[in-house]
Simulated assay, not measured.
Amino acid sequence: MNLPKFLLADNSNNPEDIFVLHTEYPRFLINLKDDEVEWFEDVSGENEQDLANELENLIELAGTFYDEEMKQYEE
């Protein structure tokens, strides 16, 4: 099975939260409501500056993914 790079996720216990799951390395779940991130991998051994740049980019892509998905629902 080919997983998409990002998935929308929700939880009825947290109806105000907006979750996006990143399925590739480094895997994470971000709550777009408050930008809280839960990491599923230990990324501490990586070059810190390269990692920070990549993670910033991935979090931005997660927000863009969510915006594009919401546009499709509105149409």
Rank of each mutant, 00 (worst) to 15 (best):
M1H: 10
N2H: 12
N2W: 08
L3G: 08
L3Y: 10
K5G: 09
K5T: 11
F6A: 09
L7R: 07
L7T: 06
L7G: 00
L7P: 01
L8Y: 09
A9V: 05
N11G: 10
S12P: 00
S12K: 07
N14C: 01
P15N: 06
P15E: 08
E16K: 09
D17R: 08
I18A: 00
V20W: 02
V20N: 00
L21K: 07
L21S: 08
H22V: 02
E24V: 03
Y25T: 07
Y25V: 03
Y25A: 09
P26K: 03
P26V: 02
P26W: 02
F28D: 00
I30Q: 01
I30K: 00
L32N: 03
D34A: 03
D35Q: 09
E36T: 07
E38Q: 12
S44E: 12
E46Q: 06
E46H: 05
E46V: 06
E46R: 06
N47D: 14
E48I: 08
Q49K: 15
Q49E: 15
D50Y: 11
A52C: 13
A52S: 14
E56Y: 10
I59F: 11
E60M: 09
E60Y: 13
L61W: 04
A62W: 01
A62G: 05
T64V: 11
T64Q: 14
T64W: 13
F65C: 00
F65M: 02
F65S: 04
Y66L: 02
D67H: 07
D67P: 00
E68A: 13
E69L: 02
E69R: 07
E69C: 05
K71S: 11
K71G: 07
Q72F: 03
E74T: 05
E74K: 07
E74P: 00
